[in-house]
Design a protein around this nucleic acid. Structure first.
Lengths: 340, 340
DNA sequence: TAAGGCCATGACAGCCTTGTCAAAGCGACC
DNA sequence: GGTCGCTTTGACAAGGCTGTCATGGCCTTA
């Protein structure tokens, strides 16, 4: 088709000035409705689309939102992208993805990019969202940003989070509801704030229901399959073992399942296993894993929303924060506690 | 810092014209080397970065490469992004990601996007890379594109592929090398060209090594966990069963492992299992899966390369194509054939 | 020495849109 | 009829950069 239709041609075709076409395109007020319609018809007829470069050069918006990540979980990353784009498309914005290499000097990777692209906003996923150098650069360049599930300095800037503590509480309560009283727990990487929150939720649920939190039932893990595997070996060796294990993420829970498998402990008849995150792996194992789903797409959409509606611009005294609901996904890896 | 440094200031600081600064930035010839150095120093001192909008408005490049996908596999998608960005960064290009919804009218989603952004090129992943409507729009808009692992009309345009047939051949040969002669095969989704190629490689290896391809050892699958599970149930029920199963992707192989697990068939002592793709799930099961790794990042980088060096521009009579090497990943799910 | 050619550089227009500001249109009211 | 105040519209500059073309210096060649 048309290699390049400009606003000029639309103006000529509809018999108004370029500026009026611009007004219609930008949904500005004070355009007579029949003028508006005439222009819209011309736009449709010529199949005209405004040139984003010219637009951002002339105006103040770039129509670009950045997504910065350095995340080992592809599923998380794509969910963020899908959620963000869903909201962005409504307003004609596009997504620029920038994988960061946190091994290197992240700030120096970010500054040039911000200076060239002049994006309207940036969404930061963990762990980049806790990289102070990156935040500093963003603020220096005056680019609004929203952090997803930040760990540190939560009040520093706009963010979107999930209630990890309450989710862990409810998962624990779910197990207790199934009759378990002796529930093992595998902690996550101590550098991640979420790890602490999840542990907190577990402790709270156990305590409130009158079950002791035994030291030898809590193992340190690192969010990896291997660490879950090793923690499970410690928890499950010998005859005195818990009837359920709640791992603070799915990868570790899968490690637990592997050990159970090896030891011929039937899941969930002999041992219930619960995870956290609802990664793709959770559906691939057998039996499928009971876990907690973060509404990642919704969180990303909320982040995009904060950016697009201007709330994240950093002028408010209290940065906006949105807390989204999680979802307990009960599948086959948890069941009633064995009798006796 | 500097809210916006323009090329003008660099020109003043280094005592040359704006145009000369532009020449230095674009690595053009015919600039005296001490002039070049002076300019570069000024650029560094002012921390100047060219404004991408102004650049693309004035020039012919947009410095943007698009990645279109509608891919159920997040791992694949992020690998593509990582590979593409690695090559793009070398030349100051950025990545725009556009998830497509192939349920809807894809072409009409794509055209406006191409018209507004005027990207310099687009990378298409399966299955979008086989959507003729999308290809038509790209060509109509004159946007160069590269397809990753296309199935149909392979010669229509630039593409990057892997030798699926040979990979399947080598995996089968690997099993034969371990002493297996009775090897089951689970085919992939018949709409995917790769499914046929993989089957072809299996047949070729069996035949060349003098082993029969028994009809009751080949099952139709659909690339899903469930279809692998069901195919394995058919292959493994009864006493007359193969000593190895080669599933044409990992998800199905995981289904096989689940069945083996249920039937108490030890992997790999009693049954060897091989997959294809090296998805994250392959490392999460126990024992870890022997599989074939596609060099996805390298393929995406090759695609970006074709775009950036102009080979994909569609002017050559034969569209360029790159065939990359796969990698056999031997882990614990395959072992010597049981004796007797 | 004059003519021709190449290299290095700069002046200026143009890319397509938005922002500013002024002007024109319109209705109502005194 | 004239004035005021509002809505609607347009002329023009500006945004930061690259493309085109012209200029001047210097080297080569006859």
């Amino acid at each position: 088709m048309s290699s390049k239709v400009t606003i000029h041609e639309v103006a000529r075709m509809s018999g108004v000035s370029i500026k009026t076409v611009s007004r219609v395109l930008n949904r500005e007020a004070n355009v007579k409705s029949d003028t508006r319609i005439r222009v819209q018809e011309a736009v449709a007829a010529l199949n005209y689309r405004p040139n984003i470069s010219a637009r951002s050069l002339a105006g103040s918006k770039a129509y670009l939102i950045g997504v910065f990540f350095d995340n080992p979980s592809p599923a998380y990353v794509t969910d963020v992208q899908l959620g963000a784009i869903a909201r962005c498309r409504e307003e004609g914005y596009h997504l620029i993805v920038e994988p960061l290499d946190s091994e290197g000097d992240v700030a120096s990777q970010v500054q040039p990019m911000l200076a060239t692209l002049r994006m309207d906003g940036v969404i930061l996923t963990p762990p980049v969202c806790d990289n102070v150098a990156v935040l500093d650069v963003l603020e220096a360049e005056g680019v609004p940003y929203v952090r997803l599930s930040p760990d540190r300095d939560v009040d520093r800037s706009a963010n979107v989070r999930m209630d990890d503590s309450r989710a862990a509480y409810e998962m624990t309560a779910h197990l207790i509801g199934l009759g378990h009283t002796d529930i093992g727990f595998i902690k996550g990487h101590p550098d991640h704030g979420a790890a602490h929150l999840r542990y907190e939720g577990y402790v709270k649920a156990m305590t409130e229901h009158g079950h002791p939190v035994r030291d030898d039932r809590v193992e340190q893990g690192w969010f990896s399959f291997r660490s879950g595997f090793e923690a499970a070996e410690r928890l499950l060796s010998g005859d005195d073992r818990p009837t359920a294990i709640f791992a603070s993420n799915d990868d570790m829970a899968l490690g637990v399942m592997a050990v159970a498998n090896r030891l011929r402990l039937e899941v969930p008849q002999t041992l219930s296993v619960a995870g956290f995150d609802d990664t793709p792996g959770a559906k691939v194992v057998w039996p499928q894993l009971t876990t907690v789903r973060q509404p990642i797409q919704a969180m990303a959409a909320a982040a995009a929303d904060l950016l697009l509606n201007g709330e994240a611009s950093g002028d408010a005294e209290t940065p906006p924060s949105r807390l989204l609901d999680f979802q307990l996904v009960v599948r086959e890896s948890t069941g009633p506690a064995p009798k006796g």
